[in-house]
Write a protein that binds this DNA or RNA. Structure first.
Lengths: 198, 198
DNA sequence: ACCCGCATGTAAGTCGTTACATGATTCT
DNA sequence: AGAATCATGTAACGACTTACATGCGGGT
């Protein structure tokens, strides 16, 4: 099974969901480090059902179209459990901004600094959203968040990765922007201060 | 043009290279946040040449097969410069380990802790490699590294992203592993100490 | 003789995105 | 009447990976 399948099972392990619900979740918590569109989700659900990992029942709704609610099976849960502790294949992150940084020596420093300041803002905003979620989790789910066998702990753990990631990203963007602004204007001018990063 | 094209131009902006050379570079410095195989590189070079971004000349070698050495053109350099300061499309990082963390409540805590310790080691090692490169850069290229119009500065900047990324990743892995070990053995047991992350 | 590094390509297959397609119900 | 949300699918296309394919020269 591919990773998308496990991503879906991860969500279904917590609650029964329709394809539509799953699509919404894939923009949220899980989606911060794994996203998918409905055009991927529906066929994958069919494959999962084929493999016996999930089952569905049709729920009729007044005032809404009918929906198929998927539930994880015993087999699905077993497969998921096994997968969790298997070492993942090495991950080479792709990041276009870092690639741009690699060619930033060619650019106008002021324009480039602006780009990195804007990106810093993006990540600051995302960080703020994460912090809010974190505060809410600790306030409302403080005990669950510390129980390693609770889904809250797991959600909190992946959220933490987001926090660290965004912090680091923002810090980096600002550092690049600072350097570009320091060095702008006067050609080849060096730092007399600026002992950083230690 | 797609990102891969700019990745190649980024390297050719610093020196003329063959497809084979580019393939090697794509596992190295640039490759830490953008990688490609030779099967992608050769066709892309042909497209770049078609678009007038690069030219090649055949270099005959004794004791080695002949090679095509590619050089960036004026047009290629302009395109690259323009691209550098354009805001990149939003980047949703995919990370299977974070996904595993999201389902870690289902797993055996000891086994999971082991997984995260192993991953922490991976990132510690990568961090050490980056630190080595950084030390070398600062020792041998101290002045260039601080000149925003030098390729060394650009290389240093992207390296810094790697350093921050790996530090954050390692820290996160260890935190997850610690939590799992703390909570292992006694069911639903909580933290009395462990005020962390503030 | 065989494998490794240099060197350059093509083909098949997988994964993901964008676009196409349909239809109900609620809100403005 | 028209847009927005809920709801489920398929088709076409693009990017990337793995595998196929070839050939020279040097080291073991």
């Amino acid at each position: 099974m591919k990773t998308l399948g496990y991503a879906i099972l991860s969500l279904l392990a917590q609650e029964a969901l329709s394809g539509y619900d799953l699509t919404q979740r894939m923009k949220g918590r899980v989606g911060n480090f794994w996203s998918a569109r409905h055009s991927q989700i529906y066929p994958e659900l069919a494959r999962l059902e084929d493999g016996g990992y999930v089952t569905h029942r049709v729920v009729e709704q007044r005032e809404r179209p009918d929906k198929k609610v998927y539930e994880i099976t015993e087999g699905g849960l077993e497969a998921l459990k096994d997968w969790v502790t298997q070492p993942p294949p090495p991950n080479v992150p792709r990041d276009e901004l870092v690639l741009k940084a690699y060619s930033v020596w060619l650019a106008d420093p002021e324009k480039a600094a602006q780009l990195f300041r804007e990106e810093a803002l993006r990540h600051e905003e995302q960080l703020a959203r994460y912090e809010e979620t974190r505060a809410w989790m600790e306030r409302e789910q403080g005990e669950n968040v510390r129980s390693v066998d609770s889904p809250w702990f797991a959600g909190y753990a992946s959220l933490r990765r987001g926090l660290i990631y965004e912090r680091g990203y923002e810090e980096w963007c600002r550092w690049v922007a600072d350097q570009l602004e320091k060095g702008a204007g006067s050609k080849g001018e060096q730092a007399d201060e600026g002992r950083d990063f230690d």
